[in-house]
C-alpha cells in the first residue's frame, strides 16, 4: 500500500453511503487516509477528536443554514 493507495471500492462506497452529506464523507475519507498512514500504534484519539471537532462544526453550520 503506497502512501495514497486505498482500495477504490472503499472510497466509492463511503461516498455512496454518505450521499449528499459531504462533511461526513470528507471526515471519513480523511480518517481512512490517516489510518492508512499509521500502520502501528499511534495516538489516534487526539487526531480523531481534532477532526471530529472540525468537521462536526462545519456540519452543524451547514445544517443550520
Amino acid at each position: 500500500m503506497s502512501k495514497t493507495k486505498i482500495n477504490p471500492e472503499i472510497i466509492k462506497w463511503v461516498k455512496e453511503k454518505a450521499k449528499s452529506d459531504e462533511k461526513i464523507s470528507d471526515f471519513l475519507l480523511d480518517l481512512i487516509y490517516e489510518e492508512a498512514e499509521h500502520a502501528g500504534h499511534w495516538w489516534w484519539k487526539e487526531t480523531y477528536k481534532k477532526k471530529l471537532e472540525e468537521y462536526s462544526k462545519e456540519w452543524k453550520e451547514e445544517n443550520e443554514n
Binding site: 463511503v14 453511503k17 454518505a18 452529506d21 462533511k23 461526513i24 464523507s25 471526515f27 471519513l28 471530529l52 471537532e53 468537521y55 462536526s56 456540519w59 452543524k60
Partner: peptide
C-alpha cells in the same frame, strides 16, 4: 448533540 449525531452517522455510514 451535534457531535454525537455526527459521530453516530459517520459510524453508521462506515
Amino acid at each position: 448533540r451535534n457531535d454525537t449525531g455526527f459521530c453516530s452517522k459517520a459510524h453508521e455510514i462506515i
